[in-house]
Design a binder for these strands. Structure first.
Length: 645
RNA sequence: GCCAACGUGGCUCAGGGGUAGAGCAGCUGAUUCGUAAUCAGCAGGUCGUGGGUUCAAUUCCCACCGUUGGCUCCA
């Protein structure tokens, strides 16, 4: 039998030889690090017997699939440890995930932090035992019988749900057997470096109507150094956590009396948001948007038309009790219906379209109490919102124009390489959540797909992530904990024009339904601020820095000169202050560094004499004395360079 | 909303059944200083809130509120 290797070379092997045996002929190093293999493109365990000619690729921890196999086995080791220490626990599922693995258990009492330590020790034992991991296949009936005998109700359910004809396989290590498609590494001894990270509740099948299971998250690495480095990186990343740093640097705070999800933006945070807002509004105006200012609340009637009353009521703050005969109002969770009323207030010819209505819009959403997170998930936020009402022919160009605007905003804030694009589609099975109009969905999703492919955007598709009225292109960002959130979004809405009876008059004098694009250009400012704090570890780009320049007088004699320059800097739009405290220069520098100031300009007797500043620049340190006028010019130039492309 | 952990002065934390401590920040005074913390003094907390157990609770128990991570949801 001929086995073709990754490098194209062909080796002879006996039919029925296992991958490991074949690999053994290759090189000791590769054999030692081998975790799994790819045979004809299919990932398999190393004990897989090969019967006929094939291509073979050995997978190590360097390969995604190898990493996956190791971590998947680690999750089985965890499950085995749980079954040993908590025999009554029932197994649900335990996959490898991006940076590790988890396993869900149904257990009477949730795991404590202590339990995790004990489990980790038990896992170490199982690893020490170096149990071979073996695969067996069973018929559907036998598989069900086996799991039912063991009382593994969840596994029985999983088997029942497997499609007809699917191979049903089990993996066994010592006294532990689990339903699993595999592949796995060859023995528990291969899983060397594990760490359990946390326990958490998780609903069976991710549905909150189902029972809550106990999930344990962990990670595993092939090399110990890599594990330690990963854990260290986690700690480092968390130092950039906007929720900690943003408070320390006085961007925002919260107060229990004000409420959950209602952050208070302090002067520095408010300043950054103001800068972004001005930037966005100026840019949008230049790109043909018109601005509106609409009410923060409306009668329930409006939301009944829009569909929010049916699809989004849980997410709204509702005022007034209908049963008491009061008028029922709701704080707005979205801007759309308000801007639609503006559109409807005028008759529109096809010649008027597209109409681009923008609004810096404060919205209210009643998030579940466990959901709030710093500035990223809040109950009140301000969105750089807009709706483009267009004739069908214009949708493509408008969509591309919006994407161009968003990319422009990302370049200005420097985050264009930190995002991923998600094409969010509906889930036909979930008629509760979505407008049930399969034709409309098909049309708008195809249209969006065509546009995305046309642009050549690198995106992935996600079912069940659409808005209730149409598909979305979401620009996703991961925070320091690896949690992903939507930063910007472009949505094609095929449903609401009909509901609101919005129309334009076409060339034949007939009424036609327009398409509507919903979009956010720089997202919601609170969230964007959070992202910037994490991205830059609090050191805002110069043009966004709430304080750009601080003058540091060395003695009181220099205060007057500093104040004079402060006025000059401010006059040309540079945000400058003077540190007039009677402290040593080292103390003031230290303070400025902690606050991540972009520039500190030190002024002493020498500088006054020579008309200089001793320049301290963030990231570069002490640059020595420079001509005062020249410094101002350079700073102004730098600010301009950052925002003009 | 659900699961877990946590809640001590503005911040970071120590302590622990007998009614609280440090550093930083703040204030006052002195110092006028050359690139990551000048010195001294002062002030600041009914230990998240409310119940319960106890002779006694900040410490133990319960509930609520809040914070953090996860689930569901989502800009």
């Amino acid at each position: 039998m001929k086995v073709t290797l990754k490098d194209g070379s062909v080796i002879e092997a006996n039919a029925g030889a296992t991958v490991l045996e074949i690999a053994g002929n290759l090189s000791q190093a590769l054999k030692k690090d081998a975790l799994a293999a790819k045979v004809d493109g299919k990932v398999v365990s190393l004990d897989e017997a090969i019967e006929k000619d094939c291509t073979l690729e050995i997978l190590t921890f360097e390969d995604e699939e190898g990493k996956h196999a190791l971590r998947h086995t680690a999750s089985h080791v965890l499950a085995q440890a749980v079954k040993r220490l908590f025999p009554s626990a029932k197994l649900a599922i335990g996959p490898a995930i991006e940076n590790g693995f988890y396993y869900d258990f149904d257990i009477e009492t949730p795991f404590t932090a202590e339990d995790l330590k004990t489990l980790e020790k038990e896992m170490a034992k199982i690893i020490q035992e170096n149990l071979p991991v073996t695969r067996t296949e069973l018929s559907r009936a036998d598989a069900k019988k086996l799991m039912a005998e063991k009382g593994e109700d969840y596994k029985v359910q999983l088997i029942e749900e497997l499609p007809e004809g699917e191979t049903i396989s089990f993996y066994t290590q010592g006294d532990f057997t689990d339903l699993c498609a595999g592949p796995h590494v060859s023995s528990t001894g291969r899983v060397k470096n594990i760490k359990l990270l946390r326990s958490a509740g998780a609903y069976w099948k991710g549905n909150e109507k189902n029972k809550m299971l106990q999930r344990i998250y962990g990670t595993a690495f092939y090399k110990k150094d890599a594990l330690l480095e990963y854990l260290e990186n986690l700690r480092e990343a968390e130092k950039r956590d906007h929720n900690k740093l943003g408070r320390e640097l006085k961007y925002f705070t919260t107060a229990p009396e004000v409420g959950q999800g209602l952050p208070l933006l302090m002067p520095k945070g408010a300043k950054v948001i103001q800068i972004m807002q001005r930037f966005v509004e100026d840019e949008e105006e230049a790109r043909g948007y018109q601005f509106t200012k609409t009410p923060l609340m409306a009668k329930s009637d409006l939301y009944k038309i829009s569909g929010h009353w049916d699809h989004y009521q849980d997410g709204m703050f509702i005022l007034g009790d209908e049963e008491k005969g009061e008028e029922v109002m709701a704080l707005r969770p979205m801007t759309c219906p308000f801007q639609y009323m503006i559109y409807k207030a005028t008759h529109h010819s096809y010649r008027d379209l597209p109409v681009r209505l923008s609004e810096t819009s404060t919205l209210f959403r009643n998030e579940a109490s466990g959901e709030m997170h710093g500035l990223i998930r809040v109950r009140q936020f301000t969105l750089s919102d807009a709706h483009i009402i267009a004739v069908p022919d214009q949708v493509e160009d408008e969509f591309k124009g919006v994407l161009d605007l968003i990319v422009y905003m990302m370049k200005a804030t420097g985050i264009e390489n930190d995002v991923t694009y998600r094409f969010s589609k509906w889930d036909p099975a979930n008629t509760e959540k979505y407008i049930n109009d399969p034709e409309g969905w098909a049309f708008s999703e195809n249209l969006m797909k065509k546009i995305l492919d046309d642009i050549g955007l690198d995106y992935y598709e996600a079912k069940g992530e659409a808005a209730f009225y149409g598909p979305k292109l979401d620009v996703q960002f991961k925070n320091v904990f690896g949690k992903e959130d939507t930063l910007f979004t472009i949505q094609i809405d095929f449903g609401l024009a009909e509901r609101f009876d919005m129309y334009y008059v076409d060339a034949n004098g007939d009424k036609q339904r327009p398409f509507i694009i919903h979009r956010a250009s720089l997202g919601c400012y609170e969230r964007t601020l959070a992202v910037l704090i994490e991205k830059y570890a609090g050191a805002m780009p110069l043009w966004l820095a709430p304080e750009q320049v601080r003058f540091l007088p060395i003695t009181d004699r220099a205060i007057e000169t500093c104040k004079k320059w402060e006025t000059i800097f401010k006059k040309v739009g540079v945000r400058a202050t003077v540190d007039t405290r009677s402290e040593k220069i080292g103390y003031k520098i230290r303070d400025g560094r902690t606050e991540r100031l972009p520039y500190m300009l030190v002024v002493g007797d020498k500088e006054i004499e020579d008309g200089n500043f001793a320049v301290w620049k963030r990231g570069e340190g002490d640059l020595g004395p420079k001509d005062a006028e020249g410094v101002l010019k350079d700073i102004l130039q730098e600010i301009e360079d950052l925002t003009i492309f």
